[in-house]
Amino acid sequence: MDMNTKLLKKNAFRVTKERGITASRVRVPGGHLEAKYLSMIQNIADTYGNGTIHITSRQGFEIPGIKFEDMPRVNELLQPVIEGLNINQELPGGGYPAAGTRNITACIGNRVCPYACYDTTAFAQRIEKAVFPNDLHFKIALTGCPNDCAKVRMHDFGIMGMTEPQYDKDRCVNCEACVKACKKKSVNVLKTVNYKVERNEAKCIGCGECVLACPTGAWTRGSEKLYRLTLFGRTGKKNPRMGEDFIKWVDEESIIKIILNTYDYVNNYIDPEAPGGKEHIGYIVDRTGFEEFRKWALKDVKLPDMAEVYTPVYWKGIKY
């Protein structure tokens, strides 16, 4: 049997342990989809797969047990899913155009969760539109608030929702619910001074617990959507590590630009000998030095006034 595995992989299929049998990977940016797509995926699994579906660790679906020769038909059946989820595609009916840049994951966000500072799925879809298709191995994840339920610090780009609390002292009745919430559930940066509340702005992480706790609406959310961006967390064999803070109070526009700039940087510096063309960005940064990365990443980026850039950034983690 002759099969170009490079092309197969680029088409979001997998070389499995069983000869001649593949699995199709369905991307679901932001991890949220209309229920009707499930029956389409079921149909593919029943018709061409082995009747099972794996829910992937990146919030997509993997349909195993597909014969190589059925891939074109699977791609046809995938077409309404690809279109419905608004995935960029080059050849209609041809399936997914790339698989390197992984599905963009997100916690459930403010469509459901009271803590979330924004609509995580919508922002994930916006990023997907900007970066996909791309063969480079990038992992991007979004989480609604600093609880980080989506574990974004294990990704190359971790996007964490923040809220800049606004305080209306004339509505404050000194009940101290905010002070207690911040102390018990967050980072303890509120204190009562003369019966009113003072916030240590430098230490505030923008979780919004004060806003949620305040019974009078004295604390409200800032009108601008702002985020913390963390960089180059990773799992893997040599040096698994948590992503570190890069920018606090960064906006959506800048995040997208930074990610796109990073593709340019990686294209320029990736090890041409890297096995399978895959070299994790973090290792490239280890090689070029953080300063070089920062120069590329922030090119033409106009950060909001309140953004704080952390530099230099050091990573820890376990080294083998």
Binding site: P114, D119, G208, L212, T220
Partner: peptide
């Protein structure tokens, strides 16, 4: 209606 001034993000408060 105060846009975005509800306790949860993207919700309004009527005051």
């Amino acid at each position: 209606r105060m846009e975005g001034k509800g306790a949860f993000s993207d919700t309004d408060s009527v005051r």
